[in-house]
Every structure is written in structure tokens, then in C-alpha cells.
Amino acid sequence: MKPIDVMLVDDHRMVLEGLRVLLEPLEFVAVTGTCTTAAEVLTALQAHVPDVLLLDINLPDQNGVDLCLQLTQAYPTLRVLALTTLNEKSYVTRMMQNGAAGYVLKNASPEELAEAITRVHAGKKYFSDEVQELLLQPTPAAPEIPVLTRREKEVLALIADGLTSHDIAEKLFLSALTVETHRRNIITKFGVSNTASLIKLAAQYQLI
């Protein structure tokens, strides 16, 4: 059976050599190229497209996430397997959205790496155990942005500008008591206890 043609991409040559040493004893894998930058990958693929490409996310000249999309669009038969230290859900989901066939952490055993290569070459997906656990964790719900009336938005903007209730009352032709009522309502809607917290949260919600 023809060995699985594998290309290695990592910006550290010691890592590349280590991967080569791990994979060379495997009869069903043939390492046919190594690259340290995105530019090298793009040049190498013009001459030869492997079956599986092990791709580090941290490259010096281009983000591996963006490069993954570029490669999978240009070479539909290429199976990209992320090999990285980045154990974060956002990276995993973005890599998969960009066409990666799997995601393996660099602390993987040689046996796991071999299995990952075999699985993605067969058209399946592969995730390290730690990555699978990460994907099963619930995504925090997006914060619910308070709904403000037009007048409350005006008052909030002026509070953020540092105006006092008296200044706001004069600017909006309202009574100071009315402004204080709006201020209390806004603070209640945001679930905060003071003006500083209100301004900070409003800025996070991009309301000011």
C-alpha cells in the first residue's frame, strides 16, 4: 500500500526534526517535505501536494488559521491537521470552519499522532482527547444588552461625557429630578451599583 504522503509545517526546526524522527519508523507514513513559514508552504505546494499537512498555528509570516482556509480552498484534496500547543476552543472552531480535518496538541504521543494522520487521510475528523473535552464545554451565553429608551440613551451618553445630573437637566431641558430618575433606571437595567461600573459596561456593549 502506498504510504501516506505527509508534509510538516512548523516555525521551529527542532520540532520539525523531532516530528520527522517520530514518523520515519512508520511504514505507512512518508514525510516528503518540511516548511517553516507560510510562504514556504505555498511555494512547496505548487510543486507537490501531499495527502496530509501537519500545520502549526503560530507561523512567523501568516496566521495558521488563515493559511488553513487558503490551503483548503486552493487544494480540495489536501487534509490539514492542526498540530499546536494552543488548547483554546476559539482556535479549534476557527480551524474547523476553515477546513481543517483535525486538531492535535503537541503533547500527543507518537501513537496518537499516527492515528490522527491515518484518520484524516481516510476522510474522517480527529481531535485530541483534551480538544474533544474542550469542544464539549458549553459556550458562555452572549450577554443580554439592556434595551434603553431614546431619552435614556441621551442621558447615558451625557453621563459618559462626565456631566452631572444638573448639567444634563439643563442640556436636555429637563428637571434634575427627571434626570435622576433616568439615571436610576439606566443603572437598574444594567444591573450595576455605580456610575463607574455603568460606563465600563456600556462601553463593553458599545453603547457609548
Rank of each mutant, 00 (worst) to 15 (best):
D5F: 06
V6Q: 09
V9N: 00
V9W: 00
D11Y: 08
G18F: 13
L19D: 06
L19M: 15
L19C: 08
P25T: 13
L26K: 10
F28A: 13
A30M: 11
C35Y: 05
T37K: 12
E40I: 05
L42I: 13
T43R: 09
A44Y: 03
P50L: 11
L53E: 07
L55R: 02
I57S: 02
N58T: 12
N58P: 00
N58G: 01
L59M: 09
P60L: 11
L67Y: 04
L69G: 14
Q70W: 06
A74L: 10
A74V: 07
Y75S: 05
L78W: 08
L78F: 03
V80H: 03
L81V: 07
L83G: 00
L86T: 06
E88C: 03
V92K: 02
V92S: 05
T93W: 09
R94E: 15
M95R: 02
M95F: 15
M96Q: 14
Q97V: 13
N98G: 11
G102H: 13
G102P: 15
Y103N: 08
V104H: 05
N107A: 10
N107T: 14
N107I: 14
S109W: 11
E111D: 15
E115Q: 13
I117Y: 12
V120H: 08
H121W: 09
A122M: 04
K124H: 08
F127I: 01
D129Q: 07
D129N: 07
L134N: 05
L136W: 01
T139L: 10
A141V: 06
R151I: 11
V155T: 11
L156E: 13
L158D: 14
I159T: 04
A160S: 15
A160T: 12
T164G: 12
H166R: 15
I168R: 02
E170G: 05
K171Y: 12
K171R: 15
K171T: 15
L172K: 11
L174A: 12
L174I: 07
A176W: 01
L177H: 07
H182V: 02
R184T: 07
N185G: 05
N185D: 09
I187T: 13
K189V: 05
F190G: 08
T195R: 11
A196P: 02
S197C: 00
K200F: 00
K200W: 00
A202P: 06
Y205V: 03
Y205D: 04
L207G: 04
L207D: 09
I208L: 10
